[in-house]
Write a protein that binds this DNA or RNA. Structure first.
Lengths: 191, 191
DNA sequence: GCTAGCTTGTTTGGGGTCAAACGAAATGGA
DNA sequence: TCCATTTCGTTTGACCCCAAACAAGCTAGC
């Protein structure tokens, strides 16, 4: 085994040898595998090009983006739109607040809720940063025509929709009645 | 603003209002955004369906997969194939080794290198787990035909290739000469 | 031989991630 | 008017993740 990167063809060959005896959904496997390769590569590039000079992480940028588009919003809604858990958002919002990009305000009617919004500095940052970010999005998609980009986006949307509509039911059917060990992580009960 | 999930149409509307004044690459933006939505949703589903009963994380499974396909391999190569950094692999391999799924062996000729391989238990686990994992991959891709899956995979491969071929050069051009603050994270020099 | 430079896996520090536990606040029924 | 239940955001614990620093080991050039 030579000390170099393996080619796609070599990987396909090795997979074929190992999986020859299995019945497998090859095309679906390729789709899922490449979604993750692409997501990691794109995120890596955007963090190290557009975001790095502003010392923003991917997630931090996404949260700023959501607030930029929607204006003031409740935290649960921001977490939902940003695709992170509410617990994660607490930390991200704390960081962005400490950098004066995001402001936190109590809900006028409900003492439990918190409203987030961009500060003027946050707005200004997004106005300067967004064009740069979008240019890098265009760069990563260079090999695809606009039509191909839309086709790609629609295929991915279909997968997301499938999981939103049927994912929970599927997991319930698969795991119901199993002796599921509790998740290793997570806060422990005090008892 | 009602207390419910926002629809795609509402998001499009809000983006249009906010970005009306910007020249933007809309199709590429949609492609990139959906890559990440889909990646997160798929990973979430697979972790909570196929992997959860075996108490495996996504990354742990990917490392087992690489070793299953390739057999014994050096750590740098496993990290490369799994799409994680060598530092991350150290921790994952340690965890998998403690669970007796992976074995670590010194390289016969080079004292710096380490060879990883599956233990018999690891092999057995993969033989049982892979069909389940693949079935869930097929489930998430249900709305797409096999041909559409391949088209999707090819589009994503093109993006990965674009970044592999031109990403570094692009980042160099963008950031060269900038007063880049050093990354906030990372080990500090002892001095 | 020696040693300067390179390569390899590990350590470290800062941060991201989830789900469960939790406290505070709102709600609803008796 | 209670008070049990629900619903918020936050805290916690275990883990993931990267890049820079590091130590151990290899290799070239002298």
């Amino acid at each position: 085994m030579p000390g170099r990167r393996r080619s796609n063809a070599e990987t396909e060959q090795a997979v074929q040898e190992r999986l020859g005896g299995f019945e497998l959904q090859r095309e679906q496997m390729a789709a899922v595998a490449n979604i993750h390769r692409a997501a990691a590569a794109v995120r890596q590039h955007l963090e190290n090009s557009a975001l790095r000079p502003h010392d923003l992480t991917w997630t931090g940028f996404v949260v700023l983006w959501v607030l930029w588009i929607w204006g003031e919003a409740e935290t649960w809604s921001v977490a939902e739109e940003a695709g992170i858990s509410k617990g994660t958002l607490t930390g991200i919002a704390r960081t962005l607040e400490s950098r004066r990009l995001v402001a936190r305000a109590p809900h006028p009617e409900d003492g439990r809720r918190v409203l987030l919004s961009l500060t003027p500095e946050g707005e200004e940052l997004m106005e300067r940063l967004f064009p740069v970010f979008n240019a890098e999005e265009a760069f990563v998609a260079t090999p695809l025509s606009p039509e191909e980009c839309l086709r790609l986006a629609n295929g991915l949307r279909a997968i997301v929709a499938q999981l939103e509509e049927h994912g929970e039911e599927r997991r319930r059917q698969l795991l119901d009645g199993r002796d599921l060990a509790p998740r290793r992580s997570g806060r422990r009960s005090r008892q």
